[in-house]
Design a protein around this nucleic acid. Sequence first.
DNA 1: TCTGGGGTCCTAGGACCC
DNA 2: TCTGGGGTCCTAGGACCC
Length: 435
Amino acid sequence: MGSAKPVVPFKKPVQCFALIDCNNFYASCERLFRPDLKYKPVIVASNNDGCAVARSAEAKALGIKMGTPIFKIQDLIREHDVQVFSSNYALYADISNRVMTTIEGMVPRLEVYSIDEAFADLTGLANAVSLEDFGRELYDKIERWVGVRTCVGMAPTKTLAKLANYGAKKYVKTGGVVDLTSQARQRKLMAITPVDEVWGVGRKISKRLNAMGIETALQLADADLKTIRKTFSVVLERTARELRGESCLSMEEITPTKQQIVVSRSFGTPVETLDSIESAVASFSVRAAEKLRYERQSAKQVTVFMRTNPFNKSHAQYSNSVTSELPMPTQDTRELLALTQVLCARIYRPGYRYTKAGVMLSDFYEPGVFQTSLFEVHDAKPKSKELMAVLDTLNKQKTGTLYFASQKSKTDWHMKRERLSPAYTTRWAEIPKVR
DNA sequence: TCTGGGGTCCTAGGACCC
DNA sequence: TCTGGGGTCCTAGGACCC
C-alpha cells in the first residue's frame, strides 16, 4: 500500500556550474595601476624574487614559462624591457575581493576556489536565460567594475566547467565565454584537448595515461572506469565521470576549517647561525599563531623544519624536521613560540648554510572543547585571550607594531622584495594621485 | 650569486588489538 | 610442523591544485 500518490512529473533542473577565472591575475593587478604598462610584458616574481609566478600575455609570448627562475631569464628581461614585480599579496587579495563581490551580486551561489577563480552554481538559471548571454554579462561587469579580464566556462560538472574555461582562454574567437552544456560540444572540445589539461590530471598521471594510449580528455572520458580506478585511484575515476557529465563534485560555499597552517620562507641570503634561524622561526611562529586565531582554532601539534639549498651541490646538505605535542591546544603566541624555539635548537646543526625554514601547526581544536584529564591543572597563561586580541588588533592596523623579543631585529634572513609595487589600495599614503 | 608558498586528499603499510 | 583474519589507527609519501 501507499504508492497511490499521483505521479507528479518531476523535471530535475539541469545542473550547471560556471567557473570564472581571472586572466594572468597577479600581472593584471600590477597593470591596473600602471596603464603605461598596458601592452608591455609584465611578470610577477614569487617570494624572494625567485621565480616567475604570473606573466602577462606579452610575457608568455616571449616564451617565459610559469615557475622559471628569474636569474635564468635576465637577458630576455633586459632585451625586451620586461617589467618585473615582487609579489604584492595585499594588493592581489584586495582586487580579488572586489572581483568576488561583483560575482556574488549576480549569481545565486558562489564558491571562492582560489584568489583568482570561483565556481558559481547556475542551476535553474540555465532554463531562464541564455547562458552565453549571462556569461558575457559576468565578463563585462567584472571588467567594467574592477578592471580585470576574466574567462567564463559553463557546464554541468565542475570538471567540465574548468574545461570550458580552458577553451575560453585558449580560443580567442570565443571572446572569453564558453557554454559547454551541450554534450556534442563537450565531446568536440575534449577531442582536441590534451589529457594533461584536465583538472586533476597532473604531470605524473598524464604520463602514465599517455603510456596507456590515453592522450585526449575524450579518451579519458570514454575509458573503462574500473580500469581507471584500479590503475590509479577513486580520484581519477571521479574525474572521468565528471568528464562524462556525471556531477561528482558539489559546491562548497562554506570554507571548511583548515587542517594545518604552514608559514615558511626562503631566506634572502643563506644564514648559518642558530641565532638567525631562531629569529626567523620566531617570526614564522608569530605569523602562524595569528593565522590560527583568525581561523578561531587552537593547535596541539607543532612542527619546525629547516633545510639548506637542495640546488646547490657544492655545499653540504642538511634537512630536518621535528614535531612535538603541546599538553593542551593553544592559540597563545607565547606558548607556541616557547615550543618552536626549543624545537629549532633541537634540529639545528652548525656548519650548514640554511636557505629555508618553516613552522607548521596541526591537530586543531575549537577553543574550549579539548577534554582535560581529571587531575590536570589547566595552567594556561593568564589573560591570554585579552592579550592576543590586543596584539591582533594593533598589528592589523599596522603590521609589526608589536613584536616578540625572540623575533629580534636581525634581518639577514628576510626575503628580497626589490621590485615591490606600492600598496595602492590598502595604504592611504600610497594611493595613486590624479593630477 | 640567484630556483615560492600554502594547501588538500588518497593510499599503502606498519603497529596493535581481538 | 603447523603459522588466521579482520578491524582500526596512525604516518609517510605521493599525487594534485593554485
